[in-house]
């Protein structure tokens, strides 16, 4: 594939989006980052529906999901992705503030590929985002 596949990032909080994108920029990742704001948009994006009707056909290399989002939360979106034959091979990383055991267990039960709690300390946050980017966009092999 000549084209570098994008990273799909779902997050309703603008501040978080900005900080995360800043972090990705800092690590100089080549992938384009497509940001959506709720779970429904994630599904629409992946299935070329709604406003993603005429999106060029490409699968993201990894999906980063916040849990707490309006309309459809991250867990629900994960459930749909992992139960869809076409989508379930896309790696999904939960990127969330929640350290609740309940979310963690549920996510893993649904087949999440990684679960990352966003550190409050920004330096640590940068470090975490960098690692996610490197691993899932560069090192990990997908189908």
């Amino acid at each position: 594939m000549g084209k570098i596949p994008p990273i799909l990032y779902a997050e309703d909080n603008e501040n978080d989006v900005e900080l995360t994108l800043t972090a990705f920029r800092e690590c100089k990742l080549q992938n384009r980052i497509d940001v959506v704001y709720d779970g429904q948009q994630v599904i629409d994006y992946l299935t070329y529906h709604g406003k993603f009707n005429d999106r060029p056909e490409e699968k993201p290399v990894v999906i980063l999901l916040d849990i707490k989002m309006p309309k459809m939360d991250g867990i629900q979106a994960l459930k749909i992705i992992k139960s869809d034959e076409n989508l379930k091979t896309i790696p999904v990383v939960m990127l969330t503030s929640s350290s609740m055991e309940k979310d963690l267990i549920e996510s893993y039960n649904l087949g999440v590929n990684a679960y990352v709690v966003k550190p409050v300390d920004f330096t640590e946050f940068l470090e975490a985002v960098k690692k996610i980017g490197f691993f899932w966009a560069l090192i990990n092999k997908t189908v």
Partner: peptide, 25 residues
């Protein structure tokens, strides 16, 4: 109670992270 705790866990943290993040930036 669970919802409250969940909310605290999820929502109170984000602003903190933002404060730290943006102050660094």
């Amino acid at each position: 109670l669970e919802a409250f705790a969940y909310s605290v866990s999820h929502d109170l943290r984000s602003p903190l992270r933002h404060i730290d993040g943006f102050s660094r930036l």
